[in-house]
Amino acid sequence: MNSDDRRWAERARELGFNQLEVARRQAEAWRNGLTGVTALLGTVFIVKGRDDVTELAWWLQWWIAFLLVVAFASLIRAIFLALGAAAGETNERILLTGEDLREWTEGEVDRVGRDIGAAKRWTIAGMALIAMALLTAWLSPTAETTRPMMRVDFEGGVACGPVTFERAGYIGVTSKYGSPVDTKLWVPVDKVSLLREVPSCP
């Protein structure tokens, strides 16, 4: 017989008497942790306000939204792993004998180590995704919505949108601008009967 067995048996018995205190301690740890989660999410939203995103092309906006959603998911996963490691899982029940407690403790030590490692990796992934979203927002050319909208009447009909003159003899009109189905139409200059700025296109 190992004299450690005696100590483990004592610990297990002690634990039986202290169940309420430990419950309170754990509830407290989880409460503090979850308060932290809320604070963190708030911070991320402030960092990435919507102002500088709304001027980007639609697909960039969606890309940034996607990056942020995955980033949040990663960070939340990281936080829950870390909380579980720090506060202990709340729903485990073992037979309170020295041997069962010892076996559980050994498994738990391994689990805490693994979960902290995983929490680190998820945090790094989440931060990287947020950085990527920020960089996308900063480095992307803003959409050309700031260019004036022009209504172009020509022989074949009417087009409306921002115009370009990059092809000699043609006016380029991007209709349905800013939507996934925008189309650029090249109208020969000599067919244009009217060209005027409008506040918005239909």
């Binding site: 634990l15 039986g16 169940q19 309420l20 430990v22 419950a23 301690r25 754990q26 509830a27 989880w30 506060a87 202990g88 899982e89 709340t90 729903n91 485990e92 029940r93 073992i94 037979l95 309170l96 004998t97 069962d100 407690l101 559980w104 403790t105 738990e108």
Partner: peptide
């Protein structure tokens, strides 16, 4: 010998009982 939360007693309603 009864079952209990080894680290801490939790707040969940349906505990995961580890069969000894």
């Amino acid at each position: 010998w009864h079952f209990g939360n080894p680290g801490y007693k939790g707040v969940t309603v349906s505990p995961d009982v580890v069969r000894p």
